[in-house]
C-alpha cells in the first residue's frame, strides 16, 4: 500500500518532468555503457599484466670459475640477506648447458665439450614492482660504478626494460578509464540531482501539505528516491541491452579468432550486469540524496 503510493507518486513526477528525466537517463546510459565496455578491457589487460609480472625474475650469474663453496655462500646471501626475495632456484652450469644444447643443437655442436655457461640463481621477487631492490642490494653503487657484494657474482640481470613498457601501458589504460568513468558518473549524479530538484519544485505544494499534516521525513523522501532509481535503472537497463547486443553481434564471432577476448580472465557477463546495475543505483541514490539534503529541510 505504501509502496504503491510511493511508486505512483514517483511516476507522476516522472511524467511531469519528462525532459530532464530523459536527459539524466541518457547520461546514466552513456556512463553505464562506458563502464560496461571498459571494465572487461581493464580486466583483460590487468590479467595480461599480472601474468607478465608473475614471470619477472632476476638472474644472478656467477663467475665461471666459482667453486661449490662460492655457490653455497651466494645461495645463503640470496635466501637470507637480500630483501624482497620470495624464492631462489639454482641452475647449475651443467643443467644450463644441457638445456641450451637441446634448444640450439647446431651452435652447441661447434662448441664441443667446452661449457661457456655460468652457474645461475633465478630469484623470484615477492613484489615484482620493487624488483630493483634486489638488484641494488646485490650491486650497491660504489664510486663511479657498481661492485657486487660477493666476489663470486659476475652479473645481475633482470628483464625490467622490456616489461616496464607493458606495465606502463596497462596503468595508463586504467587511469584513463578511471578518470573517464568518474567524470561520467559525476555528470550522472548531477543530472539526476537536477531532475530530483525539479520534481521537488514541481511538488512543493504536496510537500508543504505533507509536512503540515505530519508525514515523516522518510515518507516524503521515498517517492523522490524511487523516481531517481527508476531514471537510473532505465538508463542502466538500456545500456545493458546494448552491451548484450554488442557482445552477441561483435564479440562472440571474433572470440574464436582472437585469444585475448576469450581469455579466461574476462569477466563473466552476469557479474558484469550486477556491477553495472549496482553502479546505476548508487549513482541514482547519490543524486537524489544530494538534492533532498539541500532542498528538503523538513
Amino acid at each position: 500500500m505504501r509502496f504503491t503510493f510511493f511508486f505512483r507518486e514517483a511516476l507522476r513526477s516522472l511524467k511531469r518532468n519528462a525532459m530532464p528525466s530523459f536527459a539524466a537517463m541518457v547520461t546514466v546510459l552513456v556512463t553505464i555503457l562506458v563502464l560496461g565496455v571498459f571494465i572487461p578491457i581493464v580486466q583483460a589487460t590487468t590479467g595480461a599484466a599480472d601474468e607478465i609480472r608473475g614471470k619477472l625474475l632476476i638472474d644472478v650469474y656467477l663467475r665461471t670459475d666459482a667453486k661449490p663453496a662460492d655457490v653455497a655462500r651466494v645461495r645463503t646471501l640470496l635466501a637470507d640477506k637480500t630483501p624482497n626475495v620470495k624464492s631462489v632456484q639454482f641452475v647449475s652450469k651443467e643443467a644450463a648447458y644441457a638445456r641450451e644444447k637441446a634448444r640450439f643443437p647446431d651452435q652447441y655442436e661447434l662448441l664441443g665439450k667446452t661449457n661457456p655457461l655460468p652457474d645461475t640463481f633465478r630469484v623470484t621477487p615477492i613484489n615484482p614492482d620493487k624488483i630493483s631492490e634486489i638488484r641494488n642490494s646485490l650491486l650497491p653503487v660504489a664510486g663511479g660504478g657498481t661492485v657486487a657484494v660477493d666476489p663470486a657474482i659476475e652479473e645481475v640481470k633482470n628483464r625490467r626494460d622490456q616489461t616496464a613498457k607493458i606495465l606502463e601501458a596497462t596503468n595508463f589504460i586504467k587511469i584513463t578509464m578511471a578518470l573517464l568513468a568518474s567524470l561520467l558518473a559525476l555528470a550522472s549524479v548531477l543530472l539526476i540531482a537536477n531532475t530530483i530538484r525539479l520534481s521537488l519544485f514541481a511538488r512543493r505544494r504536496e510537500i508543504e501539505v505533507m509536512k503540515l499534516v505530519g508525514a515523516t521525513d522518510s515518507f516524503i523522501r521515498w517517492p523522490f528516491i524511487i523516481e531517481a532509481i527508476i531514471v537510473g535503472g532505465l538508463g542502466a537497463l538500456m545500456a545493458i541491452s546494448l552491451l548484450a547486443v554488442g557482445k552477441v553481434a561483435i564479440l562472440d564471432p571474433f572470440a574464436e579468432t582472437f585469444a585475448l577476448i576469450a581469455a579466461p580472465e574476462t569477466l563473466n557477463f552476469g557479474l558484469l550486469i550486477a556491477i553495472l546495475l549496482a553502479a546505476a543505483i548508487g549513482v541514482s541514490a547519490a543524486g537524489s540524496t544530494l538534492s533532498l539534503r539541500r532542498f528538503l529541510r523538513v
Binding site: 503510493f5 501539505v209 516524503i220
Partner: peptide, 11 residues
Amino acid sequence: AYALLVTGHSR
C-alpha cells in the same frame, strides 16, 4: 484522503 494516506492510515 491524502492527509490520511501520508500519515500512514490504511485504505
